[in-house]
Simulated scan of single mutants.
Amino acid sequence: MVEMRHWPLTSLELVTPRLRLHVPDAAQLDALAGLAAAGVHDPGVQPFTVGWTDGEPDVVARRVLQYAWGTWARWSEQDWSLWLAVSLDGAVIGSQELSGHEFAVRREVTTGSWLGRGFHGKGLGTEMRAAVLHFAFAGLGARHAVSGAYVDNAASLGVSRKLGYRDDGVEHHAVRGTDATLQRLRLNREDWETHRSIDVRVDGLDACLPLFGLPADE
């Protein structure tokens, strides 16, 4: 990604022992779109409330591109969504998102992610979520992180439990025309600190703080 003085998120980078999380450049974004088009979950189930993966491959790929561009276009200090590419050994393997609404006041973030199917079951989902949780709690001063997964999504729920999230009630949604139960999850700062087990390095944060509604010396 070419560094942009007026959009310092292009220089933001989260690094774990195996992964690099970063704003994708055009080629990386196109590769992510192709990865999503090839499949990110068993087609027999739909783990997302918004069924963006239901469609022909070209349609799914365009949805990824449009979603990424939309997060950048809609960004404000009061309502932001940091959509990052996740790279392993130089190749993009999925995306990790961290969102905040009135974050400077509420100090609460929401996470969401996906991985190409060939990268499931290797602990990478845990590692990339740990990266953005470190960014949120240690970098931005969050007090809470929330997430959710449908009750039949054992892999996602397992990641949350491993990282210290606690159950936070349920919701019911219509997914593919049927009732689906979503388990809400919440992680507070104390539980995050207790369950930390992955080293994370954050580069380029200081210049980005005003974009999150925080003073530069936060």
Rank of each mutant, 00 (worst) to 15 (best):
A68P: 00
A149C: 11
A38W: 03
S160Y: 01
T194Q: 14
E3I: 03
V23M: 11
V64K: 06
G125C: 04
L21I: 05
G204D: 09
C208W: 04
G90C: 03
A104T: 07
P43W: 01
V159C: 08
N153L: 03
E102A: 12
F137I: 06
A136V: 01
S99I: 00
S95F: 00
R107S: 12
G116F: 06
A33V: 05
D30E: 15
W52D: 13
G34Y: 02
S81C: 13
L82T: 07
E171S: 14
G118D: 15
T110C: 10
G34P: 08
A174S: 15
P210Y: 05
R62S: 13
D30K: 10
M1I: 04
V146P: 09
L21M: 06
P43E: 04
S160N: 14
M1T: 14
W52E: 12
W52P: 10
G125A: 15
A207T: 09
K162L: 09
P17D: 06
F48N: 13
P17V: 02
A207R: 13
L182G: 10
L19W: 02
D42L: 01
F137V: 05
V151P: 01
H195V: 02
H41R: 09
R20Y: 00
G51K: 01
L209G: 08
A27C: 01
R20I: 12
G51T: 15
V15C: 04
G51L: 03
A131Q: 06
H120P: 12
A149Y: 11
R18E: 09
H173I: 00
R196I: 01
V50W: 12
L65C: 04
R107W: 02
M1L: 04
S160G: 09
R166W: 05
P57K: 04
Y150Q: 08
V86A: 03
Y150V: 05
V105W: 12
P43Y: 02
H101E: 14
L140M: 04
L21F: 06
W75N: 08
Q183L: 12
W52K: 06
W7R: 05
A155V: 13
L35D: 06
M128F: 03
E108I: 08
S147M: 01
D217M: 00
E77H: 07
R176D: 08
R117W: 00
W72S: 10
G169S: 07
W192H: 15
K162F: 02
V159E: 09
F135R: 04
V175K: 06
A216G: 15
P24I: 00
R201F: 00
R186L: 11
T53G: 09
A149G: 13
V170N: 07
R129D: 07
F103A: 06
R20K: 13
T71K: 12
T194N: 09
R184W: 07
A37R: 05
S81R: 12
R161D: 14
D199K: 07
Q78G: 12
R201W: 00
L185V: 11
P57N: 05
V175W: 05
G118T: 10
W52C: 04
H172W: 06
V202L: 03
R143D: 13
P215F: 03
R107T: 11
R143E: 14
W69A: 14
